[in-house]
């Protein structure tokens, strides 16, 4: 019992530290790639290629004045950033980022935990994630903030539905809710390459982007119309926490897509040697993160009513039809 606790604590600390590092450097990737897409340099002053920029930004966040506007709901105002970052971090607990290795005679699995409902757990956390954004906008007693959070709430509730329904087809094919088993089931052939499953793959990316409020669907922030939306009144580390939550969400979405569709730590078509599993997984995650930045540099923001209509009238029917088609194909034909 005790050694299990110690092992878990060490794993949690290591994963947390690495995740925070990735979050910091995802901001760097975002700024650099967006810069290059817009034919600029991006950050290149702090350190070689601007590599120390995230650290400088973090330090700046710590030393900035923490402004609390008057007439805010003090408790919720302070609670909201924490509520928004905690679910983002908790998602990583069930993500298997590698197989296992032996250290000092102990077999150590490269995941914090493997609960048999891992996938549903992630969906559940996605539902909790909206509170931070909603309360942040409401508590700061600002109309832009309130509008931003109302939009967020409506958007997240709508897209969560399509997201969950899309996942059902993957669950049906894999026959499990545990992410480890889903990854292991893709050892020979990734889920994307299985017949029809590219449809839920695309659906999942779209819904996922809407769920984490990234660019074509970045309604809650919408700089040009809401002046930053829900986090308009936030400054200093509270703002930084919202910011980190956003990027932690992006990373966990990338990790999730990797697990569900891109075969987790498996190389395509060939068996993966043990030492390559973690690098393969991380490579896929960062390829997806790069894609998220790339599409941000490409697509303009949709109008709010278009987003809602797209979610309910296009994605939902496709997701529902997808279940039927995948179910029929894999039970009747295959």
């Amino acid at each position: 019992m005790l050694d299990f606790v110690i092992e878990s604590v060490i794993k949690v600390v290591v994963v947390f530290a690495v995740l925070m590092l990735f979050v910091a450097y995802t901001t760097w990737i975002e700024r650099k790639v967006l810069g290059r897409i817009q034919v600029r340099h991006g950050p290149n002053r702090v350190g070689p290629f601007g590599l120390l920029q995230p650290i400088a930004d973090g330090l700046k966040g710590f030393f900035k004045e923490d402004i609390i506007p008057s007439n805010t709901d003090r408790l919720l105002y302070a609670l909201a950033p924490a509520l928004s970052i905690i679910p983002a971090l908790l998602v990583v607990a069930v993500i298997p980022f590698g197989d296992q290795f032996t250290l000092f005679g102990r077999t150590i699995t490269m995941r914090i935990t493997d609960i048999n409902v891992g996938l549903l757990y992630i969906l559940g956390l996605a539902g909790l994630g909206e509170y931070g954004v909603m309360l942040g906008g409401w508590a700061s007693n600002n109309r832009y903030g309130l509008l931003g959070s109302l939009r967020t709430a409506a958007q997240m509730i709508s897209y969560e539905l399509a997201l969950g329904i899309t996942l059902i087809s993957v669950i049906m094919v894999s026959g499990s809710l545990s992410l480890v088993e889903i990854v292991e089931a893709q050892a020979g052939l990734w889920n994307v390459f299985k017949p029809i499953l590219w449809v839920p793959f695309i659906l999942y990316i779209i819904c996922g982007l809407a769920e984490i409020n990234r660019t074509p669907f970045d309604m809650p922030e919408a700089e040009s119309e809401l002046a930053c939306g829900f986090n308009i009144e936030y400054s200093s580390m509270k703002f930084a926490m919202f910011f980190m939550a956003e990027y932690a969400h992006a990373i966990s979405l990338a990790a999730l897509i990797t697990c569900l569709f891109l075969g987790g730590w498996n190389l395509p078509f060939v068996a993966t040697p043990g030492f390559l599993k973690l690098p393969v997984f991380l490579a896929k995650v960062f390829a997806l993160v790069f894609f998220f930045v790339w599409e941000r540099g490409t697509f303009p923001r949709l109008r709010y009513d278009q987003i809602m209509r797209f979610g309910w009238k296009v994605l939902m029917p496709i997701a529902l039809a997808n279940i039927v088609v995948v179910g029929l194909y894999y039970t009747v034909i295959a």
Binding site: L120, G124, L128, L146, A153, M156, I157
Partner: peptide, 24 residues
């Protein structure tokens, strides 16, 4: 575990999310 997740997803997430939304 299943009930745990459903409780999180349906009650803590969806239902309460809607209630907070409506109050706001």
């Amino acid at each position: 575990e299943f009930i745990f997740v459903i409780q999180l997803m349906v009650y803590a997430g969806a239902v309460m999310g809607l209630i907070v939304f409506v109050i706001m």
